[in-house]
C-alpha cells in the first residue's frame, strides 16, 4: 500500500522546497528553494534527514494533512504556529509543538494554523517525499511550473507520496531555536549599481525603516516607506540578480528579490543582503518591519564564516525529548520547558 500525506486543505501557499537548483540561471531558471534555508535544514536535522532533503514550505497559513501511512515522523521549524493533531476520534485532539520531531500514525489528521512571528514554516518528513527531482532539485518553481509536486503549490485532494511507509520508534528530538527569531535589521553590501545613487542618498537609505508591502511572494517583496532618489535615471541594461538584491525601480520604493527571483533585471541595485542574513530575510512577510545596515565586504565575509559555523553546530543544539509523544495531554504539558518560544494553541474543530 502506498504511503502518502493526503492534503485536506492546502493552506495559503504550501510548496515542496529544498536548498535550490544550482546551475540553470543561464537558461532563465532561478535557483529557488526554501526562503529560509536554515529552518528547512533544522527541520531535516530533527527527523534525521540530510540537510538537502525536500520538505514543505508553508507560507502565512498552514495545510491540513491526513496521514495515510503506517507512521511518519515529522518536524516543524520556523514560525510560531498553532499545530494540532486529531486522532481518529476527534475528542482525542491535542496541540503540538514546533521545533521538535514527532511520530504520527495512520488516521491522524495534522492541522497547521496561522503562522505568527515568521511568514514561513518548514515541515520535514523522515525519509522525504517520493518525488523525482527536476534538474537536480525538488524545489517547486512556481512561475516555470516545474519541480516539486507537479510544479505547483498544494491543492486539496493531493496525495504527497512518502519515501517510507513507516518510521522507526526512537526518542524524539527537540531543537533550541532561541536565535531563529526574525530580525528587523539585515546587513547588506552596497552595489553593484551604487553609483546610480549619491552618497547622501545611500547613507540615508541604509538604516532607514521600511515595511514589507502586501504584494509579497516567493519572487520578491516591495517595501513601503521613504523613496530613494536616483542620480542617473532608473534604467540599466539588464544584468544578473542575486537572492537579496535590493533594486530601486522608477518609483523609488525598494524591491528585495527572494528565492524565486527572475535571473536578470534592469533596475539599479543599491545593495544586496549578505548571505548570513538571507535566512532571516526569508522569515519576513507582509507587514514586517525591516532596515538594512551597510557593512563592508570584510564584515560580510566574517559574518558568513560565523553563520557557516552556526549551521555546522546545529546538531549540538539538539536534545532528546524524554517523554515520547503520545496522545496524552499531561505528558505533553510536562514537556513545555523543553522547547523554546511561545506556541499558540489552535483549537480543533
Amino acid at each position: 500500500m502506498s504511503a502518502t500525506l493526503r492534503v485536506l486543505a492546502p493552506g495559503l501557499m504550501t510548496t515542496v522546497q529544498d536548498l535550490g537548483r544550482i546551475g540553470y540561471q543561464r537558461f532563465g531558471i532561478p535557483v529557488g528553494g526554501a526562503l529560509d534555508v536554515l529552518s528547512l535544514r533544522a527541520a531535516n536535522l530533527l527527523v534525521g534527514n540530510p540537510p538537502d532533503v525536500g520538505g514543505l514550505e508553508i507560507i502565512a497559513s498552514g495545510p491540513t494533512l491526513a496521514i495515510e501511512a503506517e507512521s511518519v515522523r515529522v518536524a516543524f521549524v520556523g514560525a510560531d504556529i498553532g499545530l494540532s493533531v486529531a486522532g481518529e476520534a476527534p475528542i482525542f485532539s491535542f496541540d503540538i509543538r514546533a521545533n521538535r520531531s514527532m511520530l504520527l500514525r495512520r488516521g491522524d489528521t495534522l492541522r497547521v494554523g496561522s503562522l505568527k512571528g515568521s511568514s514561513t514554516l518548514y515541515m520535514a518528513v523522515e525519509g522525504g517525499f517520493d518525488i523525482a527531482p527536476v534538474m537536480g532539485s525538488l524545489s517547486t518553481y512556481l512561475r516555470g511550473e516545474l519541480g516539486g509536486f507537479r510544479g505547483r503549490s498544494l491543492a486539496a485532494g493531493d496525495a504527497l507520496p512518502l519515501k517510507r511507509s513507516w518510521a522507526p520508534e526512537r526518542a524524539e528530538l527537540a531543537l533550541d531555536t532561541a536565535d531563529f527569531a526574525p530580525r528587523r535589521r539585515l546587513r547588506a553590501l552596497e552595489g553593484p549599481q551604487s553609483d546610480h545613487f549619491s552618497e547622501e542618498e545611500r547613507a540615508t537609505f541604509f538604516g532607514r525603516d521600511y515595511v514589507v508591502g502586501p504584494g509579497w511572494n516567493r519572487m520578491g517583496m516591495r517595501l513601503v516607506g521613504e523613496t530613494v532618489r536616483h542620480s542617473r535615471g532608473y534604467n540599466v541594461t539588464s544584468d544578473g540578480i542575486v537572492r537579496g538584491s535590493i533594486q530601486i525601480p522608477g518609483d523609488g520604493l525598494p524591491i528585495v528579490l527572494l528565492a524565486e527571483h527572475q535571473t536578470t533585471g534592469g533596475y539599479p541595485k543599491i545593495g544586496a543582503v549578505i548571505s548570513a542574513d538571507l535566512p532571516a530575510l526569508g522569515r519576513l512577510g507582509a507587514g514586517s518591519r525591516v532596515a538594512f545596515e551597510r557593512v563592508s565586504l570584510e564584515e560580510a565575509e566574517a559574518a558568513g564564516r560565523a553563520h557557516m559555523a552556526f549551521v555546522e553546530r546545529l546538531p549540538s543544539r539538539v536534545s532528546p525529548v524524554t517523554a515520547a509523544w503520545s496522545h496524552d495531554l499531561p505528558a505533553r504539558l510536562s514537556e513545555t520547558n523543553l522547547v523554546s518560544g511561545v506556541i499558540d494553541a489552535c483549537a480543533w474543530g
Binding site: 552596497e190 552618497e199 545611500r202 544584468d239 544578473g240 542575486v242 537572492r243 544586496a272 549578505i274 548571505s275
Partner: peptide
C-alpha cells in the same frame, strides 16, 4: 562604497563589481 576593480579587455575598460558577498559581476 565598494570600489570596483578595473581591468582592460580588448582595449576597453571593464569593471568587476560585488553583487552581494556570493557573486561578482564583470561589466563590459
Amino acid at each position: 562604497m565598494i570600489r570596483p576593480a578595473l581591468a582592460e579587455a580588448a582595449g576597453e575598460q571593464c569593471r568587476i563589481l560585488a553583487n552581494g558577498d556570493a557573486a561578482l559581476v564583470v561589466e563590459f
